[in-house]
Amino acid sequence: MTPNRHWARIESMISNNTLVMVCVNAASPFLLFNTSLNCTTAFFQGYSLSLSTSSRKAKLIIPYPETDNWYLSLQLVCPQSPEECEKAKVLIETTLYLVPCLDDCGPYGQCILLRRHGYLYAGCSCKAGWRGWSCTDNSTAQSTAQQRMATLLLTLSNLMFLAPITLSVYRCLLVEASIYAYTMFFSTPGEAVLCILNYDTLQYCDFLGSGVSIWVTILCMARLKAALKYVLLLLGTLVFAMSLQLDRRGAWNMMGPCLFAFVIMVTMWVYRCGHRRHCYPTSWQRWVFYLLPGISMAALAITIYTSMMTSDNYYYTHSIWHMLLAGSAAFLLPPRDKHVEPWACSQKFTCHYQICKNHREELYTVT
């Protein structure tokens, strides 16, 4: 159900001590009025209103009213002289309507449809620390300076992805470079991106890109055959998309596929160690200057994501998560193959025509 708003207005001249008492109840009407304004019945607690000459309008907001028959009970009360109620005439105007979100969530919120446990309902998604049914409670709201700092942190932290993007293109890993570029683009909370997509879609793409970036980095380290690598990449992306739809902030929804990719990588490394009769990777410089720093950054990023990230420190911890994720990818990407030249992929895209000659001799048979 959607929130229910009800308001009443009195239009008559009565004495200052005369009150119009209003009770709104579900399941059964309220029949016994008194000066305590208690609208409780045997089935429902009820909502109370009061109108007078000094307060001619009253508003009642019922968030998510239950499905039932609703009753509006009115009573004219004259505490000092009951005789006045017999002579008084009061005109009451009532208006009742349903809205999906109260006041359209105001300037600091967005009205969204939610589906939880088979129920579909509307609600306000507040921003920048604002709370309340219509995002009007500023008790925990962020100041303008804090919002600018949070936006600056989230934007500048994404520039760290330029390092793995550049290394991927340098080593002719175009698929990895495209995924890192996707993550960097959708992790940027700029106005240009928000004009194209809403915040919820932008956040989903951010989490999807981060998960797939980890997945593709580990698969690249495993040095699989191209066909098997791209099949696993596609399957992993589909699994990430499904798991993030179920629970976007679930730790195992992100770490489960990554642990599976890690098992594949360790299996391939152990196989190469047994096949070559020595440790893989073979260079100790690779372990000390690349793998150990990359693994340390990845472990710290996972710790922040699983145990330290909350709604209060989201902007700061998520910015650190971005930097650690991009830094670990830059350290963990495998070196280019010896037979592949640097920037070899860019050299394949020529901008001119090339005439190919067939130097083989043509053999003809005369019959």
Rank of each mutant, 00 (worst) to 15 (best):
A163M: 08
Y119V: 13
T151L: 14
P293H: 03
C101W: 02
L174P: 02
A141S: 14
S50H: 11
W287N: 01
Q75W: 05
T201Y: 14
V212Q: 06
K59I: 15
R360E: 13
H339L: 00
C279L: 09
K225W: 04
I295S: 08
M160W: 15
L159C: 13
L291H: 13
V175L: 12
I196R: 10
R276K: 09
G123R: 09
I62Y: 03
F262C: 13
C126E: 01
C39A: 04
L31W: 06
A222Q: 07
Q110C: 09
S213N: 08
K225S: 06
H117F: 12
D68G: 09
L332W: 08
L233R: 01
L37A: 11
H117E: 15
L173F: 09
V263A: 15
L154D: 02
H352Y: 14
C124R: 02
F186K: 10
M149H: 04
Q75G: 00
H278N: 01
W70K: 01
A58T: 13
E176Q: 14
L102G: 04
S36N: 13
F240I: 06
G236Q: 00
P79G: 13
A88V: 13
L202V: 13
C78G: 01
Q146H: 03
I14S: 05
N16Y: 10
I112C: 04
L259H: 07
D337T: 00
V24M: 13
A222R: 06
C23I: 09
S52D: 04
T151P: 00
L49Y: 03
I62N: 04
C172R: 15
W343N: 02
C105N: 07
Y290P: 00
Y280M: 03
Q245M: 05
W284Q: 01
W133S: 12
T2M: 02
Y290L: 01
S36L: 11
R9T: 03
K89V: 06
L224I: 07
L51A: 07
R115M: 05
A261P: 06
L173A: 01
V340Q: 09
Y119R: 12
A299Y: 11
Y121E: 05
T35F: 06
I112H: 10
Y353K: 12
R5I: 15
L173V: 01
C101N: 00
R148W: 07
A226F: 14
T350E: 07
D312H: 14
L60V: 12
L300C: 14
A326D: 08
L235P: 00
F331H: 06
K87E: 05
D103V: 06
L19Q: 10
